[in-house]
């Protein structure tokens, strides 16, 4: 029988739909009966939504790019 620890330790495979059917049933049965685990799964999913927003964040300003250009020109100058 599943306990909260099993939900936590299987959460990655659960989110990625990689659990075998039996484990999935056990997990969902426990989560359905356990509001703490239900809250754990919901907040875990929301956390992934937030961290997903950090993708494609621009970092390199024109100034950084220009300093790289100057460096490359000085270091790669033909002798």
């Amino acid at each position: 029988m599943f306990i909260c620890k099993d939900v936590v330790e299987n959460i990655m495979d659960y989110i990625d739909s990689e659990l075998d059917l039996e484990t999935l049933k056990e997990l969902e049965k426990h989560t359905g009966d356990c509001p703490e685990c239900m809250a754990f799964v919901s907040t875990y999913r929301r956390m992934l939504e937030i961290t997903g927003k950090l993708k494609d964040k621009p970092f390199v300003t024109p100034e950084i790019r220009n300093r790289l250009k100057i460096l490359l020109e000085s270091k790669l100058k033909p002798v």
Partner: peptide
């Protein structure tokens, strides 16, 4: 590192801080 206690339960540890139903405008 884990959120559960030594008995493997989350009792009293998660639900009182559940923020998952907050509107997107607050979450993001």
């Amino acid at each position: 590192y884990s959120p559960y206690d030594e008995k493997g339960t989350l009792m009293g540890r998660i639900m009182y801080k559940d923020w998952s139903s907050r509107p997107d405008i607050i979450i993001f």
